[in-house]
């Protein structure tokens, strides 16, 4: 396993004392920690591609933690976020959780709570990363299909028979069969349900 596989805990807190103590705490459980005083520092910094999570103070000098969460989401950066705050009112908590926060901790928190949440987040992230990897593989395969094969696959997963497909495309049944066989081969699908699941994951909408 490469270095990139070492889980990283990112910490963003403008309060130096708080930041350093969390950093120290994370390291004390043998996790890799990287801390930033501002969101900007975090965004501009280079991140290893590996399981990670973000411990984020709600209140930051440049933007608020909630804003950063929105921004990351918009940028397609999926990273589990653990919010910490001096106080927590319900609206803020709801908003954060809705936006996909892993947990919302109020200072001062029990260190075990924080560490548990961090571990859970990392686990979750790891799972997500696995799924994303598989999807990427499928997409790669799907990309190798020719246009006609794509059409054929689309019609196959829609549940049409070869005959129907041939009629639909104006081709002979034999030709459809050949295409269909090549699709199965390229997509490495063992069976039709397998292909259907792939199509589902690739979010290929069934032909009408």
């Amino acid at each position: 396993m490469s270095v990139a596989e070492v889980p990283t805990v990112f910490i963003i807190d403008d309060d130096a004392g708080m930041r350093e103590s969390i950093h120290d705490l994370v390291e004390s459980v043998s996790l890799h920690a990287e801390s930033f005083s501002t969101a900007q520092g975090f965004l501009s910094g280079e991140r290893q591609d590996g399981p990670s999570c973000l411990v984020l103070d709600v209140r930051l000098p440049d933007t608020s933690g909630l804003d950063l969460q929105q921004e990351l989401s918009r940028a397609g950066i999926r990273i589990p976020i653990i919010f910490i705050t001096g106080y927590a009112d319900i609206p803020m908590t709801v908003k954060a959780m809705k936006s996909g926060a892993v947990e919302f901790l109020t200072k001062p928190f029990r260190e075990q709570d924080l560490l548990d949440v961090i571990h859970r987040a990392l686990r979750c992230d790891r799972g997500i990363r696995e799924k994303q990897k598989q999807l990427a593989e499928l997409q790669k395969r799907y990309g190798t299909l020719s246009a006609r094969e794509d059409e054929v696959m689309n019609l196959v997963v829609s549940g049409l028979l070869n005959k129907q497909i041939a009629a639909e495309l104006g081709a002979s049944e034999t030709t459809v069969k050949i295409h269909r066989g090549r699709v199965m081969q390229k997509m490495q699908a063992k069976s039709l349900p397998d292909l259907v699941r792939m199509a589902d994951r690739l979010k290929i909408s069934p032909h009408r």
Binding site: D15, G17, M18, E20, S21, I22, D24, L25, S28, G86, K107, P108, F109, E111
Partner: peptide
């Protein structure tokens, strides 16, 4: 804030 930091540090 400092109190929370102190507690965290104490834990660490």
């Amino acid at each position: 804030q400092p109190i929370a930091a102190a507690i965290t540090s104490a834990n660490a």
